[in-house]
């Protein structure tokens, strides 16, 4: 269990982490999301006591990090930045960490084996590839068989086999009742791994909810309809009080109605249907929509009557061609 309370970090004028309060619970994989520069890595460094917060605090199993006598037996972490001396062999790197926490030497061989680095145990990490370095970092995190693990972008640089392995590892750790906290930008990966989500933007908490709720709350589920006679179907639906919007590709999109109802109306009016498919948004769409909506806020109030935010799948990545500073400003005012 990791608890944050009012955690704040300022670098000069810039507030990197802004009054974050949330808990990471055991038994599930908790995803930690936010655009670049949102403050994820900074938050994680503060959790490990590496950076000291400007205000607020973090508790690991109820204790301050530096109150943990042998922290590696409680919490293991893979950080974003490389944290290995390139001239010390993989084995010796893990050995010195193990010794400082009273972890037996044989555990070093065990974790090296676990991450698939046994064959390069006596090699220096300066010759390691990105993925191998990542595996060594994960090995260090698992060294003390901790009840809490924290990974900052663990799949960064991993091959498909490695990604698969990390996914299974995290789910297995969670299934064993451990606390698993992981940040990533790979939404497709996150959506199959994480059960709970913490989303931050510009250092602020934007969501702390289950994956399912997050998608439901932040995305549009609709039914896509294709027909050779879109005008007729639209009028027919309109007559029953259902609004259908024409999409760019010539299909119709109907919000908030079950597919069956649309099918019934089409049948009554003898309109031929070529497609009738409910569209469920992905995590990626939900995430982008949450972020896009915030930027879209101004445009929405300026031009009355537009649908709130772009349709799923068409949404723009936040800040893609805007200055990052812009990001989330609308959201704050929108609350």
């Amino acid at each position: 269990m990791i608890e944050l309370e009012g955690l704040t970090k300022r670098y000069g004028e810039k507030t990197a982490v802004d009054r974050l309060t949330f808990s990471v619970r055991p038994g599930v994989v908790t995803g930690f999301l936010g655009p670049n520069g949102a403050g994820k890595s900074t938050t994680m460094r503060m959790m490990l006591g590496l950076d000291s917060p400007t205000s607020g605090h973090v508790r690991i199993d109820g204790k301050r990090y530096d109150q943990l006598q042998e922290p590696l037996n409680h919490i293991g972490a893979l950080l974003e930045a490389k944290s290995v001396h390139g001239g010390r062999t993989a084995y010796n790197h893990l050995l010195c960490l193990a010794q400082s926490n009273g972890i037996p030497d044989r555990r070093v061989d065990a974790v090296l084996d676990m991450v698939g680095l046994a064959s390069v145990a006596k090699k220096r990490p300066k010759g390691f590839s990105l993925g191998m370095g990542q595996r060594l970092g994960i090995a260090a995190a698992l060294l003390g068989d901790p009840r809490i693990v924290m990974f900052d972008e663990p799949v960064n640089g991993l091959d498909p086999e490695g990604i698969h392995w990390v996914r299974n590892l995290m789910q297995q750790l969670a299934a064993e009742g451990r606390t698993v906290f992981v940040s990533s930008h790979l939404m497709s990966e996150m959506s199959v791994t994480a059960e709970h989500l913490v989303v931050i933007g510009q250092g602020r908490l934007m969501a702390d909810t289950s994956m399912a709720d997050f998608i439901a709350e932040n995305s549009r589920t609709y039914v896509r309809v294709r027909t050779p006679e879109p005008e007729r179907l639209r009028d027919a639906l309109h007559a029953t009080g259902v609004n259908a919007v024409a999409a760019d590709d010539g299909s119709l999109e109907v919000d908030g109605q079950p597919a069956a109802r649309i099918g019934d109306v089409a049948a009554q009016h003898r309109v031929v249907l070529h497609e009738l498919s409910p569209q469920n948004a992905s995590l990626e769409e939900a995430f982008m929509r949450l972020t896009a909506e915030s930027v879209e806020y101004h445009a929405h109030t300026a031009a009355q009557g537009q649908p709130p935010g772009p349709a799923p799948g068409q949404s723009q990545p936040p800040g893609g061609d805007r200055p990052t500073q812009q990001w989330g400003t609308g959201w704050k005012e929108g609350r």
Binding site: R45, L48, G49, L50, Y65, D66, L68, P71, L72, A77, L79, A81, K82, S83, V84, H85, G86, G87, R88, H93, L97, S100, N101, A140
Partner: peptide
């Protein structure tokens, strides 16, 4: 200073937070 230049210091202080 090799601890700092290599980033090893983060591993070291995570393992031994009593600075």
């Amino acid at each position: 200073s090799n601890e700092y230049s290599t980033g090893m210091i983060r591993s070291s202080l995570s393992a031994v937070p009593q600075r």
